[in-house]
């Protein structure tokens, strides 16, 4: 007779591939192993599905046949710490980068970072867009624009935004060569609950960094001109407003 903590520990060890603990009974003792395998399979398959739900583009890139054992390995090294599986997998990007068989595909980690950020944006808190008239009426030297909680800026060492975009369901093969070098991704949830991803240039990235830090729009404009001479704020601000991503104006 085992105390319950020992029962749970023994069961979990068997889920991880250890021997099925004594004291588990099937109608035919020869079938204990097969029947226990239902639990092993439930854990493995459900966690693989959870990871595939959060990382559909990684699954596309490596293929389902490779993704399943990859997910199993990841689940063994970084098990969920909470029942909210939409939050599980923040470490998947670093895991992919450190996994030797994937060394020829160094961009996978960055694609996973985009998928992590998209999940965060999808579930981020709600906020109503500000009336554009309030932006127009504000003092341009003093105004601070508050961005929607879903707005994220992700710096990537690889052209992962382009890779992500070309690996959407139904995406056509592009005749254009992939851009080279790092990209910065702007990710947000728009008013229709879509979560588009786009690469932004150094000027827009500088603006977004300043706004996300809560600083004034005039500071953002200076940072943008420094990062990208001749940068024009207007197109970015218009696209943020259209997406409902400016939620408050402070002076």
């Amino acid at each position: 007779m085992h105390a319950h903590p020992d029962v749970v520990a023994g069961f979990d060890a068997a889920l991880r591939g250890g021997p099925v603990p004594a004291g588990l009974v099937a109608r035919d003792p020869a079938e204990v192993e097969r029947r226990f395998a239902v639990y092993r399979n439930n854990v493995t398959v459900s966690l693989t599905q959870a990871l595939a739900t959060r990382f559909p583009v990684i699954q596309r890139l490596v293929g389902e046949a490779f993704f399943a054992p990859l997910a199993r390995l990841y689940a063994d090294t970084d098990r969920p710490k909470s029942p909210v599986l939409a939050e599980w997998g923040d470490g998947f990007a670093a895991f992919l980068e450190a996994f030797p068989p994937l060394a020829p595909y160094p961009y996978l980690g960055d694609v996973a970072r985009i998928e992590v950020a998209r999940g965060q944006a999808f579930h981020a808190a709600d906020a109503r867009p500000v009336d554009p008239a309030r932006i127009a009426a504000a003092d341009p030297d003093r105004v601070r624009l508050v961005l929607h909680p879903s707005v994220l800026l992700v710096r990537l060492a690889h052209p992962a935004v382009s890779i992500w975009a070309r690996n959407q369901p139904g995406a056509e093969a592009s005749p254009q060569p992939l851009p080279l070098g790092p990209q910065t991704a702007l990710i947000l949830r728009d008013a229709a609950f879509q979560v588009p991803v786009r690469a932004v240039g150094p000027g827009d990235a500088a603006v977004l960094r300043v706004l996300l830090a809560g600083d004034r729009l005039s500071v953002a404009a200076d940072a943008a001109r420094h990062a990208e001479p001749g940068h024009d704020l207007q197109p970015l601000l218009v696209s943020l407003m259209r997406a409902g991503a400016i939620v408050d104006v402070k002076e």
């Binding site: 319950h4 098990r79 969920p80 710490k81």
Partner: peptide
């Protein structure tokens, strides 16, 4: 059922023995 062991969440509804001890728990 149980689904967590220590800090880990296992994402399945796992069985327990039915005893006076587990009844109290």
């Amino acid at each position: 059922a149980w689904s967590s062991h220590g800090a880990d969440y296992l994402n399945d509804l796992l069985p327990l023995p039915y005893t006076e001890e587990t009844l109290r728990l």
